[in-house]
Design a protein around this nucleic acid. Structure first.
Length: 815
DNA sequence: GAGCACTGC
């Protein structure tokens, strides 16, 4: 009976299932060797082995090649470059596949060998492998070598000087007591003296030293706020807001008065770096400030880099302005050099030691390696949660599935493993799961993107698994194409990731690459954003500040000259600059909007077509990005159907976005409506915020808010006024050819027009993934191009040889 | 018929 059933089931097995099955057997044998199984468990195991043997035997008969899981392709712009991935792991992979060709059953043999090894390990050899230098976390698949320990800092204080909560104290007094326990407190007077003495100071302080909350308060206490505000910039909005809230609590004032926000009385202001940048536009000398602190400068955001250039110049004219640059250790010298050898002031952080482990040999499949490592930690290491860094949503979903599968069925034999995925596009309700405390006896494993590297901290993490990759946005100024590619992280990122394990106690970090990889294949620092992004917006801001010689602007790291020229070229085409490179009236109006120039131009142009109301909605929706539609893996069909409702009539993606927003507004910004239509509430709220802001700005540039919803052509024309450089023409084979700077592109499959293929389109952006895709596409009448941008398009550009052969409308699906 | 790290205005 059991035999027959096994044969029947083995016939139905897919390749993936076989791998799962084998993994199950291996897991089970490894994890529970020596543990007495119940009868049922033993039967189950016997049964699984039977199926596996049957499948194995059959595959031998078929003489099929055994398959090794190939590491994900590392795509480069336009092609796949395997070599560029960690060379060593590649080497190993090549060796393996060479072996494959000679022996199609290599994998099966390896499995048998493995089983043999198991038998001998049982009798004691396991322990012999362990020594102090080599810590074998598991002998099975991945060997780790303990390499170093990042020392903890300032720990005595942490234990001894906690505030005495036994005495009766007011909340404010308690907060004041707590302030004194921060690592920065003993350095207060020394720091103030240094600020007094030098105009620019580089402050090096680990997270947890209290620098962000305390330094502005110290400056206030020392009287700097009598001459002007103390401003402090953060790369992220949430950080700025939460710090402001904390500080106003400590100062015993209401948020928005003494700390943060805009009123006359504001003395401490926490803001994003982008906000300060825009403030310089209206107040070039920043007269209302006496001190500026650029926090988290090592993150090198686009705005931080621009601020550096502007502030370096500004302090020459404002000798009374104090500048503090706060950074993590690695970049401090560089900042100091840039600001004329400014002194560096070091503040210890509050961190526990972290042990760093490297793999002994490179791992070709890092997802698999990460999963194995999770299971090993779970079985062999003391309690504490695990954080795994992966590159994207898809990887996280895959890892989630495999982990669930592998732990299922183990039931009560191992402690519970709670799997929590986290990435930016995950709906908020699901994100909350990672902050729930782990129940007694269970262990939490967080599968995260880079979001966990800087943007959020999770308590209770003791183990970090770092495969060493992340997705990096890059920009090709020649083609104007953006791409999001998997790339090895920098050493600085690796340190940051490791540090995430030592926040609440001593931690361990398992790096799924070798020490050799770390030294040879990883850059010291991540390439700053300014060198891998579209600079159109930056150039417009600098131009409106009267900075004309951009090539010689004092960037701390200059962007590629080609990117600057491309940006100038675009601004000229949009009529924001004249032939002399001077800002025009249109350009001045555009600069008022905190958007990419093509979006700003679209808004400014909407005045003419009397559809500014619709256009600012579209601009807001486009700025939110591609996180409007929610498409869970198990409900893709429903989600796609819901999405197509907004595309009825093949109106194009821009109008579809407008319909989404208007429908949401009509039902009173209902959350329920979002759920029903597979729309992300969070993104919609953000779109609403941006839209409100844009509406306010319309008034400033004296554009009336007018609605022209019935004339879709007017709306499309306004879109074209901003995006005419992004036009493309259909080719016979269904691909498109961009009109200027010709290259082959395709409509992204998520577009409502992907099946429709209009002859002419205007697109929002080009992205390179598996192909060159246009994302957010709307149909266009070619004569508009000549009408709207006669300086850019001539009749010959839009003459359409196809149209002479095909009647109008051919090549399109029925509407 | 593909796939999207993060952030900001």
């Amino acid at each position: 009976m059991e035999e027959e059933e096994a044969i029947r089931r083995s016939n139905a097995l897919e390749k993936d299932d076989i791998e799962y099955l084998r993994d199950d057997i291996l897991d089970e044998q490894y994890l529970f060797e020596g543990v007495k199984l119940t009868d049922a468990e033993e039967r189950e195991m016997r049964y699984k082995k039977k199926i596996y043997e049957l499948v194995k035997k059959r595959s031998e008969e078929d003489e099929t090649q055994s398959e090794y899981r190939i590491p994900d392709a590392y795509d480069e712009e336009g092609h796949v470059n395997q070599e560029k991935r960690f060379a060593v792991s590649l080497q190993r992979y090549n060796l393996d596949s060479a072996g494959d060709k000679m022996n199609p059953f290599a994998e099966q043999e390896a499995w048998e060998e493995h089983q043999m090894g198991k038998a001998s390990l049982k009798y004691g050899s396991k322990n012999k492998n362990q020594s102090n230098d080599y810590e074998y976390v598991f002998e099975d698949k991945i060997d780790f070598i303990r390499d170093s320990v990042i020392d903890g800092e300032n720990l005595d204080e942490l234990h001894s000087e906690l505030p005495d909560k036994s005495k009766e104290k007011s909340a404010l007094e308690m907060l004041q007591e707590e302030r004194k326990t921060l690592p920065i407190y003993p350095y207060r007077d020394e720091l103030l003296q240094a600020v007094n003495e030098y105009q620019v100071l580089v402050i090096v302080g680990e997270t947890g030293s209290g620098k962000t909350t305390q330094i502005p308060q110290y400056l206030h206490e020392a009287g700097y706020t009598k001459q002007g505000k103390v401003g402090c910039t953060q790369p992220r909005r949430v950080a700025a807001m939460s710090v402001a809230a904390r500080v106003s609590q400590e100062m015993g004032v209401k948020l928005g008065h003494e700390a943060h926000c805009t009123s006359e009385k504001t003395i401490l202001k926490y803001m994003t770096d982008g906000m300060l940048l825009r403030e310089i536009l209206s107040e070039p000398n920043l007269e209302s400030y006496s001190v500026l602190m650029v926090d988290e400068a090592h993150e090198r955001t686009l705005s931080t880099d621009i601020l550096f250039g502007l502030l370096k110049d500004l302090i020459k004219f404002r000798s009374d302005l104090k500048l503090l640059i706060s950074s993590a250790t690695l970049d401090a010298e560089k900042f100091s050099d840039y600001f004329g050898s400014a002194p560096i002031f070091k503040i210890p952080g509050r961190r526990y030691p972290v042990e760093i482990h490297y793999t002994k040999a490179p791992e070709a499949d890092y997802i698999d390696a990460a999963i194995v490592t999770v299971l090993q930690i779970h079985v062999t290491q003391s309690p504490g949660d695990i954080l795994v860094f992966l590159t994207g949503q898809e990887e996280i979903e895959t890892a989630d599935e495999i982990l669930k599968h592998r732990t299922r069925g183990l039931g009560s034999k191992i402690a519970e493993l709670i799997i929590c995925p986290i990435y930016a596009n995950l709906p908020t309700e699901l994100q909350a799961k990672i902050f729930e405390p782990t129940p007694e006896g269970a262990r939490k494993v967080v599968l995260a993107t880079n979001i966990a590297e800087t943007s959020l901290t999770i308590d209770g993490i003791k183990y970090v698994i770092d495969p060493g990759f992340s997705k990096v946005k890059s920009y090709n100024p020649r083609t104007g194409m953006e791409s999001l590619l998997v790339h090895p992280i920098s050493k600085a990122s690796a340190m940051q990731r490791a540090g995430r394990s030592g926040r609440t106690g001593p931690g361990k970090c398992f790096r799924l690459y070798t020490l050799h990889n770390y030294h040879k294949d990883m850059d010291d620092n991540t390439v700053p954003e300014i060198q891998r992004t579209n600079l159109a917006n930056v150039v417009l801001i600098l131009k409106s500040l009267g900075i004309d010689d951009l090539v010689n602007f004092d960037f701390i790291d200059p962007p590629p000259e080609e990117a600057l020229l491309k940006a100038l070229e675009l601004l000229f085409a949009l009529s924001a600059l004249n032939k002399l490179g001077e800002l025009t009236k249109v350009g001045r109006r555009m600069a008022e909007f905190p958007l990419d120039p093509m979006l700003s131009k679209m808004i400014v142009a909407s005045d003419k077509d009397k559809c500014s109301d619709e256009i600012i909605t579209i601009a807001a929706m486009l700025s939110v990005g591609n996180s409007i539609f929610y498409r869970p893996k198990d409900k893709q069909v429903h989600a796609d159907n819901a999405r197509m409702n907004f595309h009825l009539g093949n109106v194009g993606d821009h109008i579809a976005l407008l319909r989404v927003y208007n429908s949401w507004r009509e039902c009173n910004y209902s959350t329920q409506w979002c759920y029903e239509n597979y729309i992300q509430v969070r993104s919609m709220k953000r779109a609403r915020d941006i839209r409100d802001q844009l509406e306010g700005l319309l008034e400033r540039v004296e554009i009336e808010v007018t609605s022209n919803l019935n004339d879709l052509d007017a709306i499309k024309k306004a879109i074209t006024s901003g995006f005419f450089p992004h036009s493309a023409k259909l080719q016979k084979n269904g691909s498109y050819w961009t009109v200027k700077h010709p290259q082959r592109v395709h409509i992204h499959p998520s577009s409502g027009l992907a099946q429709v293929l209009p002859r002419w389109v205007v697109y929002h952006e080009l992205v390179l993934t598996t192909k060159e895709y246009m994302r957010q596409v709307t149909e266009l009448k070619p004569e508009w191009l000549v009408e709207i941008a006669p300086h850019y398009y001539q009749l010959k550009d839009v003459e359409d040889p196809i149209s002479k052969k095909m009647p109008r409308g051919a090549g399109r699906a029925k509407e």
